[in-house]
Computed example of a mutant assay.
Amino acid sequence: MSLVGTQVKPFKAQAYHNGKFIEVTEESFKGHWSVVCFYPADFTFVCPTELEDLQNIYPTLKSMGVEVYSVSTDTHFTHKAWHDTSETIKKIEYIMIGDPSHVICRNFDVLIEEAGQADRGTFIIDPDGVIQSIEINAGNIGRDADVLINKIKAAQYVRNHPDEVCPAKWKEGSATLKPSLDLVGKI
C-alpha cells in the first residue's frame, strides 16, 4: 500500500541540529512543508554526497517554506560525531534525526530489516502532515536534490489550486491543466 496521501504516523526521536540535541515528533512536520530524507548510515560513502547535495539547495528550500530532516538508524550522538569530524557533513544546517529504534523507518516503510538500515527514501510532506511524494532508490544509487525543487513547487501549486494539475516536466509559471470532460482524449 502506498503511503502517498496518508498522515505521518506518530513517533518521537532525538536529533542533532546546529550544535544541539532536540526532540522531533510527527508534529514537527506540521505547519510547513517538509522533506524527510532517509539514508543508510553515517560515516559511509554515497550518504555524505547526498546530504551535502541537499545542504546545497537548503537555502532555496527554506525560501520556499520547506524544512529538511535527514534520518538514519544511527543515534543523534553519532550524527554529532559525524558532523564534528567530516568536512562535508560539517556544512549541514538542517535537522539530523536518529532512529536507532527503527520506528520512523518502519513508519515510512523504508527499513531494510536484515541490515537494520534505511533505504534511500525521500518524502515530501505538506503542512498538514500528509505525504505528497515518495522516491525510494536502491542503496547504491544516489539521489539528485535539485529534483526536489520542482516537485515541491508542483505540490505547493496544486495545494493552492486544487482544480488544476501539473503535467510532466512542469516548471513554475508553466501552463497547468484543468481536468474536465473536454480534455478526455485530447492530450
Rank of each mutant, 00 (worst) to 15 (best):
F11H: 13
K20V: 01
P100W: 05
I134K: 03
V24D: 08
L61I: 09
A154F: 04
I124Q: 12
I95S: 09
V165R: 13
A168V: 10
S2F: 11
F45R: 01
G65W: 04
T6E: 15
V24C: 07
I124F: 12
K90Q: 15
D182K: 08
D126V: 03
D128T: 13
L54Y: 08
K153S: 11
D119N: 04
A41I: 05
L111Q: 03
H161W: 08
E113H: 08
G185Y: 05
N107S: 01
L51D: 12
R106F: 00
V165T: 11
F38Y: 02
N150C: 07
A118C: 14
D126S: 10
W82N: 11
C37Y: 13
R143I: 13
K20M: 12
F45I: 04
V36C: 08
F77A: 06
V35A: 04
Q14E: 12
L181M: 12
S2M: 11
E135D: 13
N160H: 06
P59Q: 04
G116M: 06
D42V: 06
S2Q: 12
C105I: 02
D42L: 10
P10F: 15
V8E: 02
T44R: 02
I57G: 02
D144F: 03
A155V: 00
I141D: 09
I149Y: 00
S72H: 14
K9N: 07
I152G: 10
F43P: 01
K62P: 06
T44F: 02
E114L: 12
I141C: 08
T6Q: 15
H76L: 07
D84T: 10
K151Y: 11
P10Y: 13
P167E: 00
V68C: 12
L177D: 09
S86W: 02
E135Y: 14
S133R: 12
T6L: 12
N137E: 07
V103K: 09
E172I: 05
I104Y: 07
Y16F: 15
A115C: 08
I125G: 11
C166Y: 08
D126G: 01
K9Q: 08
K62G: 07
K12E: 15
G185D: 04
S174N: 10
H17K: 03
G65P: 02
T60R: 15
I95M: 12
Q132S: 00
Y16I: 05
N137Y: 05
T78M: 05
L61N: 04
D146S: 13
T60I: 13
K90I: 02
Y39V: 09
F108Q: 05
E50N: 01
S133D: 13
H102M: 04
V110E: 13
V103W: 00
Q7E: 15
Y157S: 12
K153Y: 01
I141N: 04
W33A: 14
F21N: 12
N160E: 14
D42I: 04
W33I: 07
E135S: 15
A118N: 15
F45N: 01
G173W: 02
E135H: 10
H79L: 15
